[in-house]
Design a protein around this nucleic acid. Structure first.
Length: 392
DNA sequence: ATGTTC
């Protein structure tokens, strides 16, 4: 790994923090405190903070942290989590929202493919959490059907093109890796046995998470009877060893690629960004989404209080649908819990970090399905059939 | 975040 080129900053106490947001950004004081706390940790060289910044369990989400020590807690359990975007070979006029919603429900179950073979072909042990492979998970994870709404630059996409954005990670495997590191509070020397063991498990988790997203799109495309092509794959929760040190991205998208997705909330546009490569202080990273405005707990009472509120959370102002048949999750992930992604993009533009090249409108967000939900939708369908019969 | 949590 070598020593840091900025040892003076390290010895003098706190690493430099570059904030890529203005006073107009919604940034909680607790997130700022977490930035300062991380800057004071041993071996931290530099920090970049993005406008989707919000407090996390161990550190600020929405930041890139360059360090000469390994800090597993800055990454947490979902090692390798990220966003993969695909263009679907599905004509928009052939697309039926209600039918697609029914078909995508199969993502809830386990994948029936040959997990062992796919793991092996990616150089991973075939018995590495095979049953979790190809599943979305919970929390802020989702699989969203989108339509290209605006094109600002030629990136091979046209208005009306259907897309699939997959946000998922390393599921139970990443959790196992993180929970197996004991006493990580002081970080690890990259040359130590513990540090090297963690980095090897971490490397596998990053590959696992990327494969997981690839299998999720395969499952979705098969259900929708269409082909697909990858547009970008941007992890935002990982450590990347490099010439300047160990770059920890905690909810900051890897941005040294042509196009980086910035996810909106269920009821807001997502954006495709073209990163500005001439900003080394951004640590080759960008905001990864809108960023939370309110934490999960405080969403109770703030959204989905009445039954009709909750029903409204399953529909979007764009005429889209949200499949989230877990009441608590529906409330925690309500659009109101998130900042405005357009504002986050505006902050990145103002900081000259990136330019938007396309905006994507959500059509169908799949998060969680239950057998009860299936019965409910079947009942609804039956009822509507009855209504139609009655009308005749 | 997590086949969680009794």
């Amino acid at each position: 790994m070598g020593t840091s080129p900025n040892k003076a900053a390290r010895i003098s106490g706190a690493a430099s923090i570059h904030r890529f947001y203005s006073e107009n950004a919604w940034i909680e004081g607790k997130a700022e405190e977490q930035l300062d706390a991380v800057a004071a940790m041993e071996g931290i060289i530099a920090i970049a903070a993005f406008p989707d910044l919000h407090p996390g369990k161990y550190g600020p989400v929405g930041s890139a942290i360059l360090s000469d020590r390994i800090y597993p807690q800055l990454i947490g359990n979902d090692i390798g989590c990220g966003m993969s975007l695909y263009a679907l070979d599905l004509p928009a006029r052939k697309f039926r929202l209600d039918k697609a919603a029914r078909k995508l429900r199969l993502l809830e179950g386990v994948w029936d493919g040959d997990a062992g073979a796919r793991l092996a072909s990616d150089g991973l042990p075939p018995d590495l959490h095979p049953n979790a492979l190809g599943t979305i998970g919970g929390g802020n994870h989702f699989c969203e059907l989108q339509v290209v709404d605006t094109v600002l630059d030629d990136i091979g996409l046209e208005r009306g093109q259907l897309m699939l954005l997959v946000h998922s990670g390393s599921r139970s495997f990443g959790t196992e890796v993180f929970s197996s590191v004991i006493d990580h509070s002081g970080g690890f020397d990259p040359d130590s046995e513990t540090g090297q063991a963690y980095m090897e498990a971490h490397r596998q988790a990053v590959l696992w998470a990327s494969l997981n997203r690839a299998i999720i799109v395969e499952r979705a495309a098969r259900a929708l009877h269409c082909d697909f092509r990858p547009v970008c794959n941007a992890p935002h929760n990982l450590i990347e060893p490099g010439p300047r040190g160990l770059l920890h991205r905690k909810g900051a998208a890897k941005a040294d690629m042509p196009i980086v997705p910035l996810a909106g909330s269920r009821d807001a546009l997502s954006y495709l960004l073209k990163p500005n490569r001439h900003k080394p202080e951004a640590l080759a990273s960008l905001a990864h989404g809108a960023g939370r405005k309110y934490d999960r707990r405080s969403m109770t009472g703030r959204a989905g209080v009445t039954r009709s509120d909750r029903e409204n959370l399953s529909r979007t102002s764009f005429g889209g649908l949200v499949i989230c048949e877990d009441r608590q999750l529906l409330i925690e992930e309500a659009p109101q819990a998130y900042k405005d992604p357009a504002h986050v993009v505006g902050q990145l533009q103002a900081a000259r970090l990136a330019e938007p090249v396309a905006a994507l409108k959500p059509l169908l967000t799949f998060k969680k399905a239950t057998p009860e939900g299936h019965q409910a939708s079947a009942r609804k369908k039956w009822n509507s059939l009855g209504t139609r019969r009655a009308e005749r």
